[in-house]
Computed example of a mutant assay.
Amino acid sequence: MDATVSVWLVLAAAALAANLPFLNERLFAVGPLRAPKALGWRLLELLVLFGLVVVLGFGLESRIGQRQPQGWEFYAVSLCLFLTLAFPGFVWRYLRRHRPA
Score class of each variant (00 low, 15 high):
M1P: 12
T4N: 08
V5G: 01
S6R: 15
S6L: 08
V7D: 06
W8G: 15
L9R: 03
L9Y: 00
V10Y: 04
A12S: 09
A12G: 05
A13G: 05
A14F: 08
A15C: 11
A15L: 14
L16D: 01
A18S: 13
N19V: 02
N19E: 02
N19M: 07
N19S: 05
P21M: 06
P21D: 03
P21Y: 09
P21R: 10
F22P: 00
F22W: 15
E25T: 08
R26S: 00
F28R: 05
F28I: 07
G31C: 04
L33F: 14
L33A: 04
R34D: 01
A35G: 03
A35T: 14
K37W: 03
G40Q: 09
G40A: 09
W41H: 11
W41P: 00
R42H: 06
L43R: 07
L43S: 05
L44D: 02
L44T: 14
E45N: 02
L46S: 11
V48K: 05
V48H: 06
L49R: 10
L49K: 06
F50A: 09
F50H: 14
G51F: 06
L52P: 08
L52D: 03
L52M: 15
L52N: 05
V53I: 06
V53N: 01
V54P: 05
V54H: 06
V55Q: 11
L56C: 02
L56I: 05
G57A: 10
F58I: 01
F58R: 12
F58Y: 07
G59M: 11
L60D: 03
S62Y: 11
R63I: 04
G65H: 07
Q66P: 01
Q68Y: 02
Q68S: 01
P69W: 11
P69S: 09
Q70E: 10
Q70N: 05
G71N: 12
W72M: 13
E73L: 15
E73C: 07
V77E: 03
V77D: 01
V77Y: 08
S78D: 07
L79A: 15
C80Q: 14
L83P: 00
L83R: 01
L83Y: 00
T84C: 01
T84S: 02
T84N: 00
A86N: 03
A86C: 02
F87S: 11
F87Q: 10
F87G: 03
P88F: 11
G89R: 06
F90D: 00
W92N: 12
R93G: 01
R93K: 13
R93D: 00
Y94Q: 09
Y94L: 13
L95K: 05
L95S: 05
R96G: 00
R96T: 03
R96Q: 02
R96M: 07
H98Y: 13
R99D: 06
R99E: 09
R99K: 12
A101S: 10
A101T: 04
A101M: 05
